[in-house]
Nucleic acid binder design. Structure first.
Lengths: 159, 159
DNA sequence: CACTTATTGTGAGTAATTCATAATAAGGAT
DNA sequence: ATCCTTATTATGAATTACTCACAATAAGTG
């Protein structure tokens, strides 16, 4: 059985608080949410929790490894509960939707980079992790863009 | 021979201005600089240019594809002149140093992700690009961390 | 050289996040 | 069960990175 949130918080050496439990619970229904969204969701259970407290809680949980933070370009930080498997993300350039993508290469993906190149190639990094972000269109946005394409073609045909 | 900056600006359909030339020139000596750093460098040649103008220039050059913007987690946006080859980056978690890394897999790296997974796996994205960020320690920071490790061991040995 | 319009300058405004410090509550000790 | 210590949360201000509105300027065309 999956460990109780309270237990995982405690075994991370942190105190169990209603705020932390509420944030973890909120995250269950919000696979990749930003702080503001999480705050709104948490407020349904705890109307008085402040946004700043949500920041603090998210920071503590992230540092403890109980949740994971991703920071896609052009987006505020997003948090997810799925941890420990170093999966990656596909992000829709149309609507910002995020989808989990399993690591294609195995346990430590793409962890064998080519040699450094470019003007400042001072030596070899000690690589710890590799993070892959796929940019593209989600099914819905892809559909929309194709429809637009088609209607433009029709306009040209009928001009 | 490499094309003159002025020409590449012009052939991107943009007007050639001293500000744009100065930013491109500054970027030559700053492989992965943030807006503020670029601004300081540009001011050596053009003392009156405002930070906001540098933002605007960087935005225009990025949109025109003459420079590339990267946005590593926890860092302001960085800009580089090396474009058109979809290379990747190694970033030092110690000091923030950035190093270019050639794509290991060929033209479009890691562009064949595994199937989507997780609670919200609504369908397949139309992936356009993949961005790989390697996190680790640069040679200098790696050295430092090992020295610290060693001196701690010595302390234990001599305790 | 004049004229149109892209570009830049200036200042204010915003979003996301952090910080300082006072108030509160968790969990161990009594 | 209650007290006490200290982690955690609340509150409000501050900061960072960036964007926007609009007036001033200067590229490039005729």
């Amino acid at each position: 059985m999956t460990p109780e949130p309270a237990d995982s918080i405690r075994s991370a050496g942190l105190r169990v608080t209603s705020q932390r439990l509420a944030v973890l619970e909120a995250l269950d229904g919000l696979p990749h949410a930003d702080t503001d969204t999480i705050h709104r969701r948490v407020r349904e259970a705890q109307p008085d929790i402040s946004l700043q407290s949500v920041y603090v809680v998210l920071g503590a949980l992230t540092e403890a490894g109980l949740i994971r933070r991703i920071e896609p370009a052009g987006s505020p930080a997003l948090y997810e509960r799925r941890i420990g498997d170093n999966h990656h993300h596909a992000i829709c350039t149309g609507c910002g939707a995020v989808q989990d993508i399993d690591c294609a290469v195995g346990h430590a993906p793409c962890l064998t980079p080519a040699q450094p190149t470019g003007p400042a190639a001072p030596g070899t990094f000690a690589i710890m992790t590799a993070e892959v972000t796929y940019w593209g269109l989600c099914p819905a946005c892809h559909q929309n863009s194709q429809n637009q394409q088609n209607s433009q073609n029709h306009k040209k045909e009928n001009a």
